[in-house]
């Protein structure tokens, strides 16, 4: 599978997740953001407001595509209608790349519309790798696969999530979107060391990092993308930049969406870690 064609000048620094609440601000102010990430599932319809604004914004900014609906780890057949629509969107908007998650979301026609963790077994490695390969063959390029945050683990799992991820990436020959917040949330919920996870990931395949905020529920951390990035996640991000190098990073904020200026402040903070790293080199 050939790697996707990224123009480095289009894909660097810290991008921001595109949300409808910010369409007007982005078009009016043209903020200094190197790229935006569009959630493909929000643009799967035939027309209307979201597609109109995506077109307008795409005219000024590079975009990446990020999905939640392929159910890569599921056992129902890959939804070919969804894939066809994705291909049409990709053809229309020419994103830098497409990513989805290492998880399952549907079974036997029922959808959770949530990212459900897979068991970490040899069978599951083979199964999900074949499905990622199917999607990559259909799209004609490598995709990025993201780690999800999780609140449970299965008795049948016989390896760590990071080991599982590395095996899948190798077998499917896919690339990795490493979500720093998700690592932290899962590490806290399951009691593993987030740094061990960072180190176990196959560095050469990592193409993007994600940052977001979680919610502390007392007994566990909930990945809500509804708050600013928390301090321990910034700390882990700094370590990730040291471990992986300067990987393009995305700031996500999906619920309780604030004014765009707040996201710009978060972006600025993320870029400070790049500057700090460069100063050390």
């Amino acid at each position: 599978m050939s790697a996707f064609k990224i123009n480095p000048k289009d894909y660097h620094g810290v991008g921001i997740g595109l949300r409808s609440a910010h369409y007007q601000t982005i078009l009016a102010d043209r903020p200094d953001v190197p790229w935006f990430e569009a959630l493909t599932d929000n643009y799967m319809n035939d027309g209307g407001y979201p597609l109109h604004y995506l077109e307008k914004i795409r005219a000024h900014y590079p975009i990446t595509f990020h999905g939640v609906g392929l159910s890569l780890g599921g056992v129902d057949p890959i939804d070919l209608t969804y894939l066809k629509r994705l291909k049409a969107l990709r053809s229309q908007f020419q994103p830098i790349h497409f990513s989805d998650h290492l998880c399952w979301t549907s079974h036997d026609g029922r959808h959770s519309n949530d990212l459900l963790p897979m068991p970490y077994t040899q069978d599951a490695v083979r199964h999900v790798s074949e499905r990622i390969d199917q999607v990559q063959n259909s799209l004609g390029e490598q995709i990025l696969v993201e780690n999800v945050s999780s609140y449970l683990s299965y008795t049948m799992s016989d390896r760590t999530e990071a080991e599982f991820f590395a095996e899948v990436a190798q077998q499917a020959d896919c690339l990795i979107l490493c979500d720093i917040n998700n690592i932290y949330v899962s590490a806290k919920n399951h009691g593993f060391d987030a740094l061990d996870y960072l180190k176990a990931m196959p560095k050469a395949r990592i193409r993007e990092l994600h940052l977001a905020g979680y919610e502390d529920q007392g007994d566990y951390l909930l990945d809500t993308h509804g708050e600013a990035v928390h301090e321990p996640v910034w700390g882990l991000y700094e370590r990730a930049l040291e471990e992986y190098g300067e990987i393009p990073t995305l700031l996500e904020w999906d619920t309780n969406i604030p004014d765009f200026s707040v996201l710009m402040q978060e972006q600025s903070r993320a870029l400070n870690y790049w500057t700090k790293k460069q100063a050390r080199v």
Partner: peptide
């Protein structure tokens, strides 16, 4: 039915 399929069926049943 595979182990994966059994797990997902049970999980989806539980979720709903």
């Amino acid at each position: 039915m595979s182990e994966l399929s059994k797990l997902y069926a049970t999980m989806m049943e539980a979720i709903y």
